[in-house]
Amino acid sequence: MLEPLIPNNVVCHALEAMIFVSIACSILGVIISRMALSSIGFTMSHAAFAGAAIGMFVGGNAQAAAIAFSMGVAALIGPISDKAKMAADATLGVLFAMSMAVAVFLISYMEYMGRGLSASALLFGDVISLYREEIYALAAVCGLSIIFVLAFYKEISAIMFNMKIAEAAGIRVKLVYYILLFIIALSVALSLNIVGGLLIFVLLVTPASIASQFCFNVKSMFVVAPVVALLVSIFGVWAGFEFTLPVAPLVALLLTAVFALSVMLSFKRRINTKIH
């Protein structure tokens, strides 16, 4: 896509990947942060991490296993919350712990068996060695996230407002919620080897949190969050290659810095002290 502009294939692929990941994650992040379900981010990233570890353990495709395992976890969140009458956040906590345990168990076991597994690529990501097909998959999931928000915008906005009120209004809350979980699972699993399981959470939560400091309505949040994520990611990729710094952690740090700045500058937090 950007080859005519950036002749260096490695930089070009890294930039393309970061653009798609940042747009997809920040759009989905607007929804989950408003629903107070930010923990979906780290649960899904660790589910993908565990899935990738399973894939490596059985000698199969790590990414396919990561997608399958994240989808499985996404499918479990709703039924477990309903059956156990637990808040979704508590269910996410249980599934997060389970995923982490699976991943750590397999990695430790493989080390013990002399089949060393380097988990660093899965934990911290690697934007250097990306295949063309991976970029296409990320572009597809980015498109899917945008189509999901556009197609179900009215249902999503009602759910973001209040899930119980949306349900009482006759909106098919569960259907939209499950689609959301599956798209998050897919996005996170595909982003795992680019941004890493530990940093994907930043892209899900921070751009939405920055947008919420300035936006008074949801529509503008859906625009501001991906624009911020995109700009920071582009700058991060440039700075990473220019100064030989790890790209994904740099983007995460830059986003956190922008968030800190936005909290300080947010006019939403100002109190009007005028008497007249």
Binding site: R34, K154, E155, S157, A158, F161, I165, A166, A169, G170, I171, S212, C215, F216, N217, V218, M221
Partner: peptide
């Protein structure tokens, strides 16, 4: 981030 107008409109969505 929802105005009164938007919240009232949501009543129609179901």
């Amino acid at each position: 981030p929802f105005t009164v107008e938007q919240v009232v409109m949501m009543g129609r969505f179901g």
